[in-house]
């Protein structure tokens, strides 16, 4: 207790010494990464927080195992709409069954990540805002948004994401595609953009919760809307296609990755995906910071 404060940013930054040092901002305007080693500390925060949530899930045996069973059922159920549709048609909007298999795989990756990481944290953080429990998250010397986005975790939902990876590989094998390295990199880029866009939408919903405290329904709405992402973007026409490409970019999340692997995604679409994701992320960050300034910290 009597020792000096362990302000060990330099220690934490040890692993990043080879990187070029960025000049420290003269004034820190609000919440955000600060100083050397911040990235390392945040990554460790994510790891420890996820570990804690797994430990908390293990405290309740029945809940833990039932979560596992439900996840398996959910993974299988995710493929049913595809199977049913293909029983009646040879292809859907130009997508062959194996190409659709890849798309459904990407959809399951996205919904698995959403169910495991995004949705539980969204619920927990919204509840924290409503009850004032967010106070303790804001008192941590880390980016409050990162704290909120790892507030909770449903490990079993990752089963769906893993099943999605399997389905994506099955689809690739079935299609007989042998993607080149640029195609693989493009696929990883657009899938990453899709995840970034998903998080950005979640942050926008979370930011709204500061003003309108009871907004858990928005998280349900996001989950329901993700169902649109199980169909190729070419199914949609006109305004719906624009909506699902640029505003709620399901196309980037699920259609673009298999298109990249199949060699059907041109460079302009990939750049468009990147721009859309970056713009959404920037908008989400700005909205979050503005919302945080209006936090009223319910109750004493």
């Amino acid at each position: 207790m009597s020792e000096p404060n362990a302000s060990s940013e330099t220690r934490a930054g040890g692993g990043l010494r080879r990187r070029r040092r960025r000049p420290r901002r003269a004034a820190v305007t609000g919440d955000g990464f600060e100083g050397r080693g911040a990235l390392h500390r945040h990554l460790r925060l994510v790891a420890v927080q996820l570990r804690l949530r797994v430990l908390a899930a293990l405290e309740y045996r029945t809940g833990f195992w039932s979560g596992g069973v439900l996840s398996l059922v959910w993974s299988i159920a995710g493929t049913v709409p595809l199977v049913v549709a293909l029983e009646h048609r040879a292809d859907i909007a130009g997508w062959t069954p194996w190409a659709l298999c890849m798309l459904v795989g990407c959809h399951m990756i996205i919904t698995g990540l959403f169910g495991a990481l995004v949705q539980p944290s969204l619920y927990a953080a919204m509840d924290d805002i409503r009850t004032g429990a967010l106070d303790y998250l804001l008192l941590r010397p880390v980016d409050a948004l990162v704290s909120c986005l790892v507030a909770d975790f449903e490990p079993w939902c990752l089963v769906e994401a893993v099943a999605g990876v399997g389905l994506l590989i099955v689809g690739m094998v079935g299609s007989g595609v042998h993607p080149s390295l640029p195609q693989l990199l493009t696929m990883a880029l657009v899938l990453g953009c899709g995840v970034m866009a998903l998080y950005a939408l979640a942050v926008l919903a979370l930011s709204l919760a500061f003003a309108a405290l009871e907004l858990q329904n928005l998280a349900y709405l996001m989950e329901a809307m993700l169902d649109f992402a199980r169909w190729p973007i070419s199914v949609f026409r006109g305004p719906l296609r624009a909506l699902f490409t640029f505003v709620v970019p399901f196309a980037i999340m699920t259609s673009y990755p298999p298109m990249a692997l199949l060699g059907r995604l041109d460079a302009s679409a990939a750049v468009g995906a990147l721009v859309t994701a970056v713009v959404l992320a920037g908008l989400a960050r700005a909205t979050w910071q503005r919302a945080l300034r209006g936090y009223t910290s319910a109750s004493s």
Binding site: S7, V28, D31, E59, D135, R140, V142, S299, S300
Partner: peptide, 24 residues
């Protein structure tokens, strides 16, 4: 401004709120 340097130097304990994880 919530600078990390300040947040490392202060602590707030609230009798009616908790920071400890309930199940752990």
């Amino acid at each position: 401004r919530r600078s990390h340097e300040l947040l490392r130097s202060i602590a707030l304990v609230m009798g009616q709120k908790r920071q400890l994880s309930w199940d752990l």
